[in-house]
């Protein structure tokens, strides 16, 4: 159902189903848009695809064919997008930031970069959050930072893996506060949250979408969020900005095409996402699934990527110097 096994049979299915359901805005390039997904079916990126693409199908009058090419933290799919895909607007990919940039920043043998892409639109952002065990001695973020000051390098902070958004969040907090943590990488957000629940680490730098269920079940307690403003779902949790540290970070997912696609195709795709941003039904569904919608299109999305790239190159250069 979700997994693409037999492209031939699926495209046959796509052809029969491609009879446009809405005539509002026809996509000029193709009636079958291929989406390269850098992660397994059923994961977070796929979840985004499953809720956005039915709406985009109606808006653009195209069928979406998801192709799952997991591996190397998405880099296999993104290399194919940047280097080997037709530049006519028939292939796009779900792009996860900052993973999209940190992949090639920390790893020389990955040879794509954001200049090879046409960013279309960011769709969701999952803000970063600091969570601790419910019985943790740290009641507030200040107490956690205080403890780190008293025991430099001995407070253990879990993250989702080197190069992930939480790893960089930890470094950003270190840089902003001048403190030192012991960064413990795990194989993803889930295991990092589990370690905090089991009390094996002092805190986990995680993402709201991942741990929200555990917060409501009282198996984890949030100390601070890495967003610009307090989040509607966690109204009592302060932002780091409030306590004087300018650290905003999270994990975002959107769509990008290869660089050099025709302007018309780009404009049509961007227009579709702008329409999506105003679709009540879509916004209601997103809220129900606890997606934090953050639609940023075209040049603004490119600026967002550029800013992140710059920040992370600088942070990584410092990490490498320390090592």
């Amino acid at each position: 159902m979700k997994k693409l096994l037999l492209p031939a049979s699926l495209s046959l299915f796509a052809l029969t189903a491609a009879i446009p359901l809405s005539a509002s805005a026809e996509y000029s390039v193709t009636d079958e848009l291929r989406v390269l997904q850098g992660f397994q079916a059923g994961g977070g990126s796929d979840a985004l695809a499953q809720i956005t693409q039915p709406f985009l199908r109606d808006i653009l009058g195209v069928n979406f064919v998801n192709e799952y090419i997991p591996g190397a933290a998405g880099a296999i799919a993104w290399t194919r997008l940047g280097n080997q895909s037709p530049k006519d607007g028939s292939v796009i990919s779900i792009t996860n930031t900052p993973m999209l940039m940190t992949n090639y920043i920390i790893n020389e043998s990955i040879n794509y970069n954001i200049d090879q892409l046409t960013p279309i639109a960011n769709v969701v952002t999952d803000p970063g959050v600091i969570v601790v065990h419910p019985d943790s001695p740290y009641q507030t973020i200040e107490e956690l930072l205080q403890a780190a000051e008293e025991n430099p390098g001995r407070i253990t902070i879990g993250n989702s893996g080197v190069g992930g958004d939480d790893y960089f969040s930890t470094i950003m907090v270190e840089n902003a506060t001048g403190l030192k943590f012991e960064k413990v990488p795990f194989a993803g957000d889930g295991p990092s949250a589990t370690a905090a629940m089991g009390g094996q680490i002092d805190a986990s730098f995680n993402n709201v979408g991942i741990v929200y269920g555990h917060i409501t079940a009282d198996s984890l307690r949030p100390l601070a969020v890495f967003s610009e403003e307090r989040l509607p779902m966690l109204p009592d949790t302060p932002t780091l900005k409030e306590i004087g540290y300018d650290v905003v970070n999270g994990s975002s997912r959107g769509y990008s095409a290869p660089a050099g696609i025709p302007d018309q195709a780009r404009d049509e795709l961007i227009a579709a996402f702008e329409e999506l941003a105003t679709n009540e039904e879509f916004l209601a569904l997103a809220e129900e699934r606890a997606f934090y919608i953050d639609i940023i299109t075209g040049d603004d999305y490119m600026d967002m990527m550029k800013r992140m790239e710059e920040t992370f190159i600088e942070i990584w250069a410092n990490v490498e110097d320390d090592a």
């Binding site: 591996g71 190397a72 880099a75 920390i106 790893n107 043998s109 990955i110 080197v162």
Partner: peptide, 16 residues
């Protein structure tokens, strides 16, 4: 996992 360095991949991305 700890350093993010690829090992024994011979620069081949499929092995990352």
């Amino acid at each position: 996992l700890i350093t993010g360095t690829p090992r024994m991949t011979f620069g081949h991305m499929n092995l990352f």
